[in-house]
């Protein structure tokens, strides 16, 4: 997997907020079909890193390459259209709309159909069935007609990922897809996400705090600390790294 050309890589990426060096020279790469866990203590710069890649913030220095092209300056919308999608740590859904509509809007947007105003949305049978298929692959087919706000937290987290997935991305950045749910539900969520993204050969980066999840589902682990990459390697290598243990796992084990 690592022998493959990376689909996305960053070179010495930096993002400062005044004195705070949130992302401080990160060089990172990810290949198609790879599931990378990005771990690190709170404030290590993980979410900022995702925000810079997706164009929410412009980097202060460094480059982002996607499919061999420099996309550092590309707009948010352009990056989405190119195939870089994300989910959110705090679920971002259309709360009043059904699960089906949450996914359907993403499908319509990907197909460039959201400007059609002269035909009822229900007449787009292909869009509807694709949205239902996506819901099914996340185990949400029964909930298609339920408003997002009425779903339990675990399913809201899944739906958030399903919406990103509906954009058919080549790179998927998942910001804590299992935060705020019980540890049993964490596994249910990962059992849904990981096979689905592997199936589609999507390069997936998952920000995660739960070490069971990190070691259980990722191909590679990247450890961020103080805006820098502290260590990187296969899950078992990271588990055995003394430096990581001291700076991260020790803290996490103590906390949980």
């Amino acid at each position: 997997m690592s022998s493959q050309e990376p689909i996305l890589y960053t070179v010495d990426l930096k993002k400062y907020f005044g004195e705070v060096r949130a992302v401080d020279g990160v060089s990172f790469k990810i290949s198609p079909g790879e599931v990378v866990a990005l771990i690190g203590p709170n404030g290590a710069g993980k979410t900022t890193f995702v925000n810079v890649i997706t164009g929410y913030f412009n980097p202060d220095a460094g480059k982002i390459y996607y499919q061999g092209k420099d996309i550092t300056k590309a707009s948010r919308i352009k990056k989405i259209r190119m195939g870089i999608a994300r989910s959110f740590q705090l679920v971002n859904l259309y709360d009043e709309l059904t699960a089906l509509d949450n996914v359907r809007i993403a499908v319509l947007s990907r197909l460039g159909k959201t400007s059609i105003f002269w035909k009822p949305v229900e007449r787009f049978d292909d869009v509807r069935s694709e949205a239902l298929e996506i819901l099914a692959s996340f185990g949400l087919e029964e909930k298609a007609e339920v408003p997002a706000k009425a779903l339990p937290q675990g399913e809201r987290k899944l739906l958030d990922v399903a919406v990103a997935f509906a954009l058919r991305p080549r790179v998927l950045l998942l910001d804590e897809p299992t935060s705020g749910v019980s540890s049993k539900d964490k596994h249910t969520i990962m059992e849904r996400i990981v096979p689905t993204v592997r199936n589609e050969k999507i390069a997936t980066m998952i920000i995660e705090h739960d070490m069971d999840i990190v070691f259980g589902y990722s191909d590679r682990v990247v450890v961020m600390y103080d805006g820098k990459i502290l260590a990187e390697g296969k899950p078992e290598e990271i588990r055995q790294s003394r430096e990581v243990q001291e700076k991260l796992l020790g803290v996490t084990a103590g906390a949980s």
Binding site: T54, R76, I77, I80, R81, A85, R86, F88, N92, L93, Y94, D95, E96, L97, D101, R104, I105, A106, L108, S109, R110, K113, T114, S115, I116, F117, W118, K119, P120, V121, E122, F124, V127, V163, A164, A166, L167
Partner: peptide
């Protein structure tokens, strides 16, 4: 009731998400 109408509902309910699906 068109796809455009759904996109509007998306911007109404969650502007951030609407942007991140490309609206």
């Amino acid at each position: 009731n068109s796809p455009f109408g759904r996109a509007l509902l998306a911007t109404r309910d969650n502007e951030t998400r609407a942007e991140f699906v490309g609206i």
